[in-house]
Amino acid sequence: MSRTLIFLGFCTVGCLSFVSYNLVRMPALAPFAESLGAGPTSVGIVVAASTLTGVMLKLPVGALSDLVSRRKLMLLSMAAFAGPPFLYPILSSVEVLIGLRVVHGLATAIFTPLALATVASMYPIQRGAALGWYTSAAQGGALLGPLLGGWLVDHGGFATTFTVAGWIGLLALGCYLLVLRGLTENESSFSSSRRMSEVMGEVVQGVKGILRHTAMLAASLAEAAKMVANGTLMAFLPLYLVSIGLTLTEGGILFAIQGVFSFLAKPLMGRLSDRMGRRPLIPVGLLLCGGSLAVIPHMMDFSSLMWLAASFGLGEAIVTASSAALIADLSHSHNIGAGMGLRGTIMDMGHAVGPLLAGVLVALLGYQGAFGLISGLQIAAAGFFMVVTLRRVYEQVAH
C-alpha cells in the first residue's frame, strides 16, 4: 500500500474516531447525566472528566510512545474509542458515569498526540501540509459528531445514540487495523528484556527534557491561549447572542461558520507554513483570534458576527496547523511523541480554563470587558512566542 493511501486511511481513522467520540459528548452527554439525577455541578464534573484524563496523560503517554511501539499504544486508544459507548446505556448512577468518562477520555488522551507524531514522522518534509490535512479530517469528524448526535437523540433516544457511536468506533478500529502495518513506527521499540522501571525512568527523563524546551513551551502556550478563547466562545457566545435578541439557531450557524472555515483552511495554512516557516504565522493566527474575540461583544447584527466567526476560524486554523508542525520540527526522532504530548496537555489546560475564566470575568466586567481581556491574552501569547523563538534563532546563529 502506498504512503498516500496509508495516509488517507489514517485520516479516515481520525475522522471516524472523532465522529464516535463527539456523538457521545455533544449534545447527548449533559442531558443524559441529568436523566441519571445529576445537578448542575455534577453535570460539569461529568463533562470535564474526560478532559482531565487528557491533562494528566497526554504528556507522559507521548513520552512513553517514544520508547515503546507507538502503533500498539494507538491500538489501545482505538479500543477506548470503540468500547465505552456500548456501556453508557446500561449505567444507572452519576458516579459510574463519571468513571466511564475518565476511561473514555483515554481514547483522545492516547490517540491525539500519537496520531500527530505519526503523521509528522510520515512526512518530514511536507509536515505542515500533512498535519493540516490530518487535523482537518479529525475536525470534520468532530463537527459531524454533534450534528448526527443531536438528530439521533431527538429521533432515537440516548441508547440508540450511544450504540451508533460504538459501531462507528468499531469501524474506526477496523480501518486502523487495515493501515496499521503501513504506519511509520518510532525508531525505539520496547524490549521485553528491559525492566518496566527502566522504561518509566526514561519516560520521566523525556518529560523533563521536553519541559525545558522553551520554544516547544511557547508553541504549546500559543495553542493554549487559542483554546482559552475558543472555550470562551463555546460557553458565552450563545448567552451573548440571546442578550442582544438573536437566537440559539443563529448561534449554531456562527459556530458552524467558525468550524467550516477552520476545517477548510487548515490544509492550506499547513502548506503555507511549509513555504513561509511556522514562526511568522502563529502570531498572525493569535492576533486574528484575539481581534475577532474583542470585537464580537461590540457587534449586534448577525452579518457582522458571521464575518467575525469566519475570521476566528481562520486564525484557529493558522495556529493549529503551524504549531503542531513547529513542535515536530523542534523535536528529534526520539522525542516527537513527548513534544506532541506536551502540546496536548497544555491545550487541554487552556480548554478547561477558558470557560471558568470567562465566567468570572463576565460576572465582574460584562461581555465587552471579559472578551477584551481574553483577547489581550492572545496578544500576550503572540508576543511571548515571538520573543522566545527569536531568542532561539539568535542562539542558533551564535553557535
Rank of each mutant, 00 (worst) to 15 (best):
L5C: 04
F7H: 05
F10Q: 01
C15Q: 03
F18K: 03
V19R: 01
M26T: 11
M26R: 10
A28K: 10
L29H: 09
E34Q: 13
S42D: 06
S50P: 04
K58P: 06
A63Y: 14
S77V: 03
A80P: 03
S92T: 05
S93N: 11
V94N: 14
V94C: 15
V96A: 14
R101E: 10
G105E: 03
G105K: 05
A115N: 13
V119P: 00
Q126I: 00
W133Q: 01
A137S: 09
G141R: 12
L143R: 02
L144K: 05
F158D: 13
A159R: 14
A159H: 15
T160R: 07
L177D: 06
T184N: 07
T184D: 02
E185V: 05
E185N: 06
S188N: 15
S192Q: 12
M200Q: 14
K208C: 02
T214C: 12
A218H: 11
G231Q: 10
P238A: 11
P238L: 09
L241T: 11
L248E: 13
G270E: 00
S273W: 11
G277T: 08
V284T: 15
L287G: 05
G291F: 08
F302T: 05
F302R: 10
A310H: 05
E316R: 01
A321H: 00
A325R: 02
A328W: 00
A328G: 01
S331I: 07
H334Y: 14
N335C: 09
A338Y: 10
G339N: 03
Y367W: 12
L373N: 09
A381H: 04
T389N: 15
L390R: 13
